[in-house]
Amino acid sequence: MRVIRPVRPPPSVEHMSPQHTDGPDLEVRDLTRVFGAGPVRAVDGVSFTAPSGLLTGFVGANGAGKTTTMRMIMGVLAITSGEVRFGGRPATTQDRRTFGYMPEERGLYPKQAVLDQLVYLARLRGIDATAARAEVLDHLDRLGLAGRARDHVEKLSLGNQQRVQIIAALMGAPRALILDEPFSGLDPAAVEGMVDLLREHTARGVPVLFSSHQLDLVERLCERLVVLKQGRVVADGAPADLQSTGTVRHRLVVSGDAGWARGVPGIHAIDVDGPTALVEAVDDTAVQRLLTTALERGAVHELTPVRPTLAQIYREVTA
């Protein structure tokens, strides 16, 4: 017998430092958007908080309302009802001008040089030309695009265009970041580089809300998670909390065949494969009963609670 303790995911660098700071939180309250005369409630009473200094993952199936919510947060789509709050008061147009935003569909001026258009976009945000240039060059350098500064955007690969687009959102020390699928199409190394960049912003106390379909990534990165289904929030919290509210399973490894586990009261064997059994227990007594029975039958090599992955939770809450 080796361990009988919960196995936590290995503490990663990302999970060590971030904590809720006293900077301004981004909140949405009862946000609703109705489209057309139908009417379709694309977003229906959505409320959640993207706390300052934390990465908040925003997940949900296609059409769940993530993009619509983000567009309302940024003010590019009119809000039917509800409100967006920033720093404890309704977000103003002036507030939003200080937010970094990466829209769902990608695009930049295809026939303009990378440096020129990033400087242009930065200057539109009120940064003076010299500072804008320095900041853009710094970001290009960090994302490995220093050599492409003079190239037209259309000459860049999609992944590189994506990096340029993200740089556009990060210019000028934004006070909040709203990023729609920032990691799609990036290779793992690029994702790491991007995460480091985002961490710098959360370290400044900036709330970062990003949507993604890559649940493993969200699980690894986020301190907060909001799951949307058909325009409603179906889960909201720290990934670890969400995982503990999900059904906990146990894995049992014994010396002989574990088929007997199917007959233990209060235990539902999901899968038995030779000496290994994956079970769901109705309560902790049932787990103890399983362990006692196993010990009576021979050696027990492992009895481990298996925390559901985010993918499982996601499937459960969006089922």
Binding site: R71, M74, G75, V76, R96, R97, F99, Y101, M102, P103, E104, E105, R106, G107, L108, Y109, P110, L121, L124, R125, A168, A169
Partner: peptide
């Protein structure tokens, strides 16, 4: 290209 969304939120 939705650049206008970036621009519209800035100015």
């Amino acid at each position: 290209s939705r650049l206008v969304e970036i621009i519209a939120t800035a100015v």
